[in-house]
Amino acid sequence: MLSVQNVNKQFGHRPVLRDVSLEIKDGELLGLVGPNGSGKSTLLRIVVRVVSCDGGSISWNGNSILNAGADQRRPLLYLGHEPGFYPPLSAAENLHLIAKLYGLEPSPADVEKNLSEVGLDPARSGPIRQFSRGMLQRLALAKALTIPWELLLLDEPTTGLDKQGKSMLSQLIETWRKDDRSLLLVSHDEEWLSSHCDRMVQLSNGRIQRSEVDGTKSVQTELVEEA
């Protein structure tokens, strides 16, 4: 279980997150919505320690992530808004390298299989600098198939994806749901998010505004805090 308690963050004098608290239970799919600049991406980046936080605590299964060793980040996989790859390398080389960073040694056949599964041509050996935004997004999803994770943090995963890509992403999310894996999804597309997530949380001006429970698609809104 991921527990975020009273997290605060300021960039200069501008507060980005103010006393944000949320929990993601095992096997839960949580959606984070909110307007531009509301702090959604910053929160994700704080959870994986790309961005430091000014106060609060974050733990995974009771173990603190902040100020802990790198091994505490192993169960978490972050797919950011930017692709997070090396442009001069090929798709397979990028996947192989990232797997090695997680202490894995995937066979070329495994890498090829994962690339094919997201609709990328495994035989394509050119640098990913030539990839379109949608292809990079597919490659990011191949990363989620290559690395074993317990909590996947996805920031705007539909960006650049065509209709087929979106449908492939939906299928992957449903597979992960069946496998009882936890996901934290960030998107502007509230409709798309609500169709996949068990629960939705809205951030506005760095505060959690409301938490919605979407059980059998009949939305029950619970007011957590007013601005």
């Binding site: 790198a70 972050y78 960073l101």
Partner: peptide
């Protein structure tokens, strides 16, 4: 600066790699 191009630096920072 090469790490910044596709934000690979964030990928490395979020990976289980000691800084």
């Amino acid at each position: 600066s090469l790490e910044k191009e596709f934000d690979a630096f964030s990928m490395i920072l979020s990976a289980p790699v000691e800084r």
